[in-house]
């Protein structure tokens, strides 16, 4: 265990934990945008900046990436930290002035408007979508292309990527909601990734319910009866309920001769 101080409060956390995790243990709120607990820390959005002092030296660093060390003194509420976070959110507000999540966070940090020239983007380039696709799904269907302000998340060659299984994990982790998944008729459309995936038909009710590619992917990785993947969630629940009634029913019969 490692002992450290955050905002004058002592906390003990496991070695290898980050300052962000330690702060959350204390209930201290640190805003994050490019962080997700299921993914490796990235340190790109910079909104989680904190001040870390080791000995006499103190510097700004990202809480999501900084590993705890014995005896470090962390400030999450110093003037320097507040100023830095406001600066970062002001930059993001200029990039995405119409994204509600960014506006909310800006307001929370005390930034009402940006002094910089505004654009109208919806993506903050946090990279969560690309990272979940790589680290969790293992597909790497999308990744960053170009450099600097030209940087965008894209599929290779900006065309439908054959390794995209249409699972929607990217949309699930996206903090701004820019990735939109639409199930229309027989297909799932992820326009931003130029993808269209056929939806499988439920064996019982006949409704389209999940992309064929996603089900195939899950089937290969999760040990469950094959018919589990052939039913939509409603029918699966119905089926399970029936089976349960059968089991409970028969057992109550036997206990009551």
């Amino acid at each position: 265990m490692v002992k450290l101080t955050i905002d004058n409060r002592e906390v003990e956390v496991e070695e290898g934990a980050t300052v962000l995790q330690a702060a959350r243990k204390l209930g201290i709120e640190i805003p994050t945008l490019c962080y997700h607990e299921a993914l490796a820390p990235y340190g790109a959005c910079r909104v989680c900046l904190v001040e870390v002092a080791t000995g006499k030296r103190s510097r700004l660093t990202t809480a999501c990436t900084y590993p705890v060390w014995e005896g470090i003194v962390v400030r999450t509420d110093s003037e320097r930290v507040i100023k830095a976070r406001r600066f970062i959110i002001e930059l993001l507000l200029a990039r995405c002035p119409n994204v509600p999540q960014i506006r909310e966070l800006a307001e929370k940090l005390g930034v009402k408007q940006t002094r910089f020239k505004t654009a109208d983007d919806e993506c903050i380039l946090c990279g969560l979508c690309g990272r979940v696709c790589k680290e969790i799904i293992g597909s790497s269907a999308i990744s960053f292309i170009n450099r600097g302000i030209e940087r965008v998340m894209e599929t290779p060659f900006e065309i439908d990527s054959e390794v995209c299984i249409g699972c929607g994990a990217c949309a699930f982790v996206c903090p701004t909601g820019v990735i939109k998944i639409e199930d229309i008729n027989d297909y799932r459309k992820v326009e931003i990734w130029h993808a269209q995936r056929e939806l499988a038909k439920c064996k019982d009710c006949g409704n389209r319910f999940a992309p064929v590619a996603t089900l195939k992917y899950l089937k290969e990785r999760i040990e469950l009866p094959d018919d589990f993947f052939e039913l939509c969630s409603g029918c699966r629940r119905k089926k399970l309920g029936k089976e349960l009634v059968n089991i409970v029913g028969s057992s109550s019969d036997s206990s009551n001769p």
Partner: peptide, 11 residues
């Protein structure tokens, strides 16, 4: 030449 990863450098 900025890689564009972090907000302050890019924006």
């Amino acid at each position: 030449e900025s890689c564009g990863k972090c907000t302050p450098c890019r924006e």
